[in-house]
Design a binder for these strands. Structure first.
Lengths: 193, 193
DNA sequence: CCTACAACTTAACATAGATCAAGTCTTTTT
DNA sequence: AAAAAGACTTGATCTATGTTAAGTTGTAGG
C-alpha cells in the first residue's frame, strides 16, 4: 500500500530512506465504503488524498440539483477540494467513493511539516500542480472544441481502465452530456467496429 | 513598470531589497505590437510572461481551423504555454497581443536560478499555480453547468475591465459560443436594464 | 429466490446555440 | 479621402444534444 505512493512520488523526486519514512509517517490511512463521502460540499477540506485502492469521484451539484463530475481518482491519483484546501473556505464540491476504497491522507498541517523537513517536496508538488493545470487546460479546450462523440473517444483512449469500471452515467457527467446521449454515442461506436 | 511585478509578487511573498533586485535582474523586457505573436503553436515555449501593459490572448486552433480562446492576460497577469514549458514539447497554443503590450519575461533557465538563489519563490509559484488550477476548475464546471447567457454574466462580473476593452468576438470565443450568439445575448441583456 | 431499485437503451419530441447570409458601422490601409 | 477589411447585428434555418417517457436488463437486499 505504501509502495504505491512511494512509486508515485518517485516519478519526479528521489527520496532517501529517511525521507521516505518521514513522508510515510505523516500520512493517515483511511478506508471508504462505496457511496461514502470523503468530503461534502460545505466542509472545509484540510487534506490531500492519495488513492491506493478503489475509485473516488469529485462532483459539483449546481443550483438546479444537477450533478457534474469534475474528476475521477483511481489507484495512483491524488484528489481533494483544492479550492477549499487553498482558501480555507467551505468546499464547493463533494468527493465520494464509487467503489470500496483505501486512501492515504496528508493533512495540511502535516503537509507544512513535510515541506519544512524535506524541502524538495516543494518542487515535487509544484511539478504535480503544473501537470494538473495543463491537463485541466487541455480538457477545457477539448470540451469547447470537440463534439460529444469525440470527447468520449478521447476519454476511452486516455483512461481505458476507467472506462471499464466506472458507470456510464458518471462518465456521461464527466463528459458534460446526459446518460442518454452517451448511450446513443456508444451504440453508434459499436456499429463502426 | 517593475513596480507592477513586485506588487504582484508581494501578494503572497515578502522579499528583501536584495531578493527583489535578484528577481528583477533575471527578467527580460519585451514590447509587443498589436497582433504580434509571443508564442506560436509549434514553438517551444521557454518562459513565463508577466504583462505590465496591454493585453494578450492565448488561443488554440482546432483541426477545423476554429480559434478557441484559452485565456486573456491584462496588466498584472501571468501567461505562457504551460504545457510546452513543462514538457519541452512544441506548444499547442498561440499567444498574441490584442493591444500594444509591454511584458516581462522570465526564462526557464533564469527561473531555475531564481529558485536556487531565493528558495521562497518555490512556495510562491506553488501558490500561484494552486490558484490558477482552482480557477480553471471553476471555469470548467461553469462551462458545463451554466447556459451561455449566464456564463457571460459571470464573465463581466468577474472581469469588468476585460469586458470593456476586449473585442466581443474574442470574448465569445472565450465563453465557447459564436459571436452571433454573444450579440443576441447582449441585446437581451440590454432590454432587461 | 423474489422484489425493488438502479443502470442502461431506445424512441419521439423540444431547444439552445450553430450556421449561413445580408446589411451596417468602424477601423485600417492605400 | 476612398477603398478594403474587419466588427457587430439581425433574421432564417439547421443540428447536436437535452428532455420526457417507456421498456429492458442487471443487481443488491430481504
Amino acid at each position: 500500500m505504501h509502495e504505491t505512493i512511494l512509486q508515485n512520488i518517485s516519478r519526479f523526486t528521489e527520496l532517501t530512506e529517511e525521507e521516505k519514512s518521514t513522508f510515510l509517517s505523516l500520512l493517515q490511512y483511511k478506508k471508504l465504503r462505496k457511496r461514502q463521502y470523503l468530503v461534502q460540499a460545505g466542509d472545509i477540506c484540510r487534506f490531500e488524498c492519495f488513492v491506493t485502492k478503489g475509485c473516488l469521484r469529485q462532483y459539483y451539484v449546481d443550483d438546479s440539483g444537477q450533478e457534474h463530475v469534475v474528476m475521477f481518482a483511481i489507484e495512483g491519483w491524488w484528489t481533494s477540494d483544492m479550492y477549499s484546501l487553498v482558501t480555507g473556505e467551505p468546499s464547493l464540491t463533494n468527493i465520494d467513493a464509487l467503489e470500496d476504497s483505501e486512501l492515504l491522507l496528508i493533512e495540511r498541517t502535516q503537509f507544512d511539516i513535510l515541506l519544512q523537513k524535506v524541502p524538495k517536496f516543494e518542487r515535487h508538488f509544484r511539478i504535480m500542480l503544473q501537470r494538473a493545470f495543463v491537463s485541466h487546460q487541455r480538457r477545457l479546450i477539448e470540451n469547447m472544441s470537440l463534439p460529444a462523440d469525440q470527447r468520449y473517444c478521447r476519454f476511452i483512449e486516455r483512461y481505458p481502465e476507467m472506462e471499464q469500471r466506472i458507470p456510464q452515467k458518471q462518465i456521461a457527467s464527466f463528459l458534460g452530456i446526459t446518460p442518454e446521449s452517451l448511450s446513443r454515442i456508444r451504440s453508434q461506436y459499436q456499429k463502426k467496429l
